[in-house]
């Protein structure tokens, strides 16, 4: 794949995702330095999208709610990327992508951005969110799951080696359930198990509550067989985590008494 013409001939296959990783890198390099190739690729991608769009199908109705719940409280990446950054970051899952500073509600103090463990951390965030699978979806995707599990373990290992990490436990009121959180200076992982299922119009929502008592949503959590999990990137040292039951879609501010509240002290 050293000859530019050979690589150029791959533009079509690349646009159809019909290349392997080595080919993809070769094309990425070509496109980065050759505006004509980049322009051709943009055109071919548009053609490929027309092929994709030619076979529409109704998604399961539950997907909409699952998607909206999954992105609730989820931060976005920053724009970044070069002029011809691949619009689809390479095939690796979220873990290999650059990580932006968390974009939770504004905080009065600035927090240092983690560089080394940031990507893994975000991989964990993504894995947790994506783990909110569509109800009824069959989990036949062992390979994917194994990869996600591995990333989660790595992220968790990173988290636990954080010198500031503290593990705290609590018991939920009303119907039981046990909650555990790993708290660090600038993020927290919350999980609870043994929680009763909620009515159709209700969800479990996690909050970061600062010392002044101000609550910021850390996202709606998906109940899976009694278990919920969530990452709170907006957490800082001294904050508390609280879980409430809210109307489907989540609330701007808590509307019910927390079932459980966890703090480091």
């Amino acid at each position: 794949m050293s000859e530019p013409d050979d690589v150029r001939a791959l533009l079509g296959a690349y646009a159809l995702d019909a290349v392997d990783d080595a080919d993809r890198r070769a094309v990425d390099e070509l496109v980065a330095r050759d505006p004509a190739a980049a322009a051709e690729l943009d055109d071919l991608r548009a053609v490929a999208a027309r092929l994709a769009g030619a076979t529409p199908a109704d998604p399961p109705p539950a997907l909409r709610e699952a998607v909206l719940a999954a992105v609730a409280g989820m931060p976005q990446t920053s724009a970044g990327g070069g002029a011809h950054a691949d619009p689809v970051p390479s095939d690796a899952p979220a873990g290999d992508r650059p990580v932006p500073a968390a974009e939770m509600p504004p905080r009065p103090r600035s927090r240092p951005q983690r560089k080394r463990s940031g990507a893994r951390w975000w991989a964990l965030a993504a894995a947790v969110a994506i783990g909110a699978a569509v109800p009824g979806a069959v989990a036949v995707q062992q390979a994917q799951r194994a990869r996600e599990a591995e990333q989660q373990q790595e992220a968790l290992a990173d988290l636990l080696t954080d010198p500031s990490a503290v593990v705290v436990h609590g018991t939920a009121t009303d119907g039981g359930g046990a909650a555990t959180a790993v708290l660090t200076d600038d993020r927290a992982l919350f999980s609870a198990s043994g929680l009763p299922p909620l009515d159709a119009g209700e969800v479990y929502q996690l909050w970061v509550v600062d010392a002044a008592g101000t609550a910021s949503s850390a996202g709606v959590m998906v109940w899976d067989d009694g278990t919920v999990r969530q990452l709170a990137d907006g957490f800082t040292s001294g904050d508390a985590l609280a879980m409430t039951v809210e109307p489907a879609g989540g609330s701007e501010q808590p509307t019910t008494t927390p079932l459980v509240t966890l703090t480091a002290s």
Partner: peptide, 26 residues
Amino acid sequence: DHAAEVAQEVWVEVWRTAPRFDATRG
């Protein structure tokens, strides 16, 4: 079921990476 799972991943990624969308490229 697989398609729904992947579609969910895609939509999450759309949300997360929307700031990278470059209208000059498509």
